[in-house]
Each structure stands twice: as C-alpha cells, then as structure tokens.
C-alpha cells in the first residue's frame, strides 16, 4: 500500500503537494491506525470470560496432564518418526525405480507415486485399518498399533519423499557419475557412494518439510482405531474435549503440535539460508 512518489529527479518537474517521503509517512501511520482499531474492536466485543472458560480453562488443562505428554505426545512422535524412517527408505527405493532403465520398475514406481500422492491420507489409513485385517485374515502386523501406523504413514510419506529424492538425484551434475565411472566404479557403486549422498544433501530442507507435514498427517491415524494407550495428540485432545465439552485439551494438543513443528520450520529456514550461501 506504499505510494512511491514518481516525481522526476531532475528538471523543473511539477511539484507534488506532499513530498513522497511525507506521503509514505502518512500512509504508514494510517496502516498502523487501522491495525490498532481492528484489534481494539475485537478485544472489546469478544466475550473474554467464555473464551477463557472454553479454551484456556486451567482446571480442564490440569486433567489433561500428564496423559497428553506421556501418551499423546509420545505416540505422535513414535508414529511420525517410525513412519518417516520407513517412508525414507521406501521413498529412496521408489525414486531409484522411477529413474531405472528397466521399464516395469519405472511403471510400478510411477503408479505407486500417483496412487499414494493422489489419495487423501485418511483413505489409506481407513483401508489399511479395516480392509487389510479382513482381506488377510489371521495376519497380524507386529507391535500393533505401532506396526500398522508406521506402515500407513510410511506408505503415504514414501510417495512424497520419492519425488523429493528424484529431484535431488537429478540435481546432481552428470559429471559426478562420469567421474565415478571413470575411476572404475560400477553404476551401483557410483549411485550409492557418490550420487545419493549428494542428492540427500541437496534435498535436506524439503525432507525436513515433509517431516513437518507428517507430524500433522499423523493426526489422521485415529481412523485405524485403537485403544486409549494408542492415542496420539489429536485423538487424546479430541476425546477429552468431547467428554467435557470444553476445548482446552484441544488447544493444548495444538500447542504441542506447534512445539514440534515450529522448531523444525526454523531448522528448514536455517538450512535453506545455509545452502543459498554455499552456492554463491
């Protein structure tokens, strides 16, 4: 909204009534004033008593502890990290298949990526949670619910991670592979010792971003269905909130998500800035 004056720098230009500098000052003052007014209005007309009672209720908050940490936060971290580790390696394999010379590998990788990137995560979780036990009767995932959740989150994140890895691998200059081959390394050796380590370094910021997204997606695994001890942050907060009709546990759950995601976002920005500097 800043109005940059366009008065010519030289010559007897028609003088504006206000200098550009003054105009900019006035414009800024107006913007601050509007901001202050909006805040004031919100503060004045909001029902602070009710808001505090429903969203920031200390008594309700107390009931959420320590479970929200020892169960909710703990499970969110276990689910997400295990899903991410699985997705990381599966994604790397899918990326290599996507870039393979063997046509069927490329086709399988492409279909995999399109399906799991295209489906809402919650659909995948539903199918895994309900469909698989029925389809493969008697088959039990090890360490349930952790096994099923890790598999569900891993399958979904692998599709995104595969595309990230592919971009990274393709960003490694061709000369790197040629230098490796000219030293007598086989194609596979060059890929694992030279290409992939550099590709991963290139894509560390988007990889971290995908970890953030997976922390949020892990809130959907409740549809797989499990008992209280398996609740993650969202389900934990949600069940307390519905029991009591008070939203404070949900606010707490949200707070803990931010405790995980905001520092990671900060790390991503730092890494990106570092990479930018490195390239100059």
């Amino acid at each position: 909204m800043t109005t940059n004056g366009t008065v010519a720098e030289a010559g007897p230009a028609p003088r504006a009534r206000l200098s550009p500098r003054k105009r900019k000052k006035i414009s800024l003052a107006i913007q601050y004033a509007v901001f202050a007014v909006v805040i004031a209005v919100v503060v004045l007309i909001a029902d602070w008593k009710s808001i505090q009672h429903v969203f920031l209720n200390v008594d309700e908050a107390k009931k959420a502890f320590p479970g929200i940490i020892t169960v909710g936060l703990k499970n969110t971290i276990i689910y997400t990290v295990s899903g991410y580790v699985l997705g990381f390696f599966l994604g790397l394999v899918v990326a290599l298949m996507r870039l393979s010379d063997v046509m069927p590998y490329r086709a399988v990788a492409l279909i995999y990526i399109e399906i799991f990137r295209g489906l809402p995560a919650i659909v995948v979780f539903m199918i895994l949670g309900f469909g698989v036990p029925i389809a493969f009767e008697g088959f039990e995932m090890p360490h349930d619910p952790y096994g099923t959740v890790a598999l569900a989150l891993g399958l979904v994140s692998a599709a995104y991670l595969a595309e990230t890895f592919r971009a990274g691998i393709q960003a490694v200059p061709r000369g790197q592979a040629e230098a490796a081959r000219s030293l007598g390394m086989s194609q596979g050796r060059a890929t694992f010792s030279i290409i992939i380590p550099q590709a991963i370094r290139i894509v560390i910021p988007p990889l971290t971003n995908e970890l953030i997204l997976l922390f949020k997606d892990s809130s959907l695994v409740f549809v797989i269905g499990f008992t209280l001890s398996g609740y993650e942050l969202f389900k934990f907060g949600e069940s307390l909130s519905t029991q009591t009709g008070n939203s404070t546990p949900m606010i707490l759950a949200g707070f803990f998500y931010l405790c995980l995601t905001v520092p990671l976002g900060y790390v991503v920005r730092k890494l990106e800035a570092k990479q930018k500097r490195g390239r100059v």
């Binding site: 200059p173 000369g175 790197q176 040629e178 230098a179 490796a180 081959r181 000219s182 030293l183 007598g184 030279i194 550099q198």
Partner: peptide, 15 residues
C-alpha cells in the same frame, strides 16, 4: 577403465 585415468574440464570432484 581402471587402466585409464580421466581428468575433466570441470574437475568433477565429489562435492
């Protein structure tokens, strides 16, 4: 290829 060493215009050191 081990009998042949190659040096490239763009160096191609492993970064």
């Amino acid at each position: 290829r081990r009998k042949l060493g190659m040096v490239f215009q763009q160096f191609n050191l492993f970064g």
